[in-house]
């Protein structure tokens, strides 16, 4: 699931299993979790041109990722590997209550 792109950047891909895609509540959870890390974290719907700052709730809510789409995550910084793992886990586990 995780692969080390180079010495600094960690990436992950995860399928969005949430029934209605990346709507408001998952967006808040994802953003809150991302903010717990020092790393710079970006996400995008697989294949989309633009990377989105995972710590910007407005931008995450606006990304309109659909159910079944794949979310790409990349992070750089001291805790980047843990950040990618945590975010992949959050999305893969369908944004459980209490997470984030």
């Amino acid at each position: 699931m995780l692969d080390r792109a180079d010495g600094q950047i960690f990436t992950g891909n995860v399928r969005l299993v949430h029934a209605v895609g990346m709507h408001a509540r998952p967006a808040v959870k994802l953003t809150k979790l991302a903010k717990k890390f020092q790393a710079q974290i970006s996400v995008r719907v697989a294949g989309a041109g633009e990377w989105i700052n995972a710590k910007s709730v407005a931008k995450i809510m606006a990304m309109r990722a659909a159910h079944g789409s794949t979310i790409e995550i990349k992070a750089s910084g001291s805790d980047a590997e843990a950040a990618v793992a945590a975010l992949v886990d959050l999305v893969a586990s369908d944004f459980p209550d209490g997470a984030g």
Binding site: A24, V28, K32, K35, K55, V57, A58
Partner: peptide, 12 residues
């Protein structure tokens, strides 16, 4: 309100 609170929750 939702976005402000989300940002606030991170200690901003």
């Amino acid at each position: 309100a939702v976005m402000a609170a989300t940002e606030a929750a991170g200690g901003s």
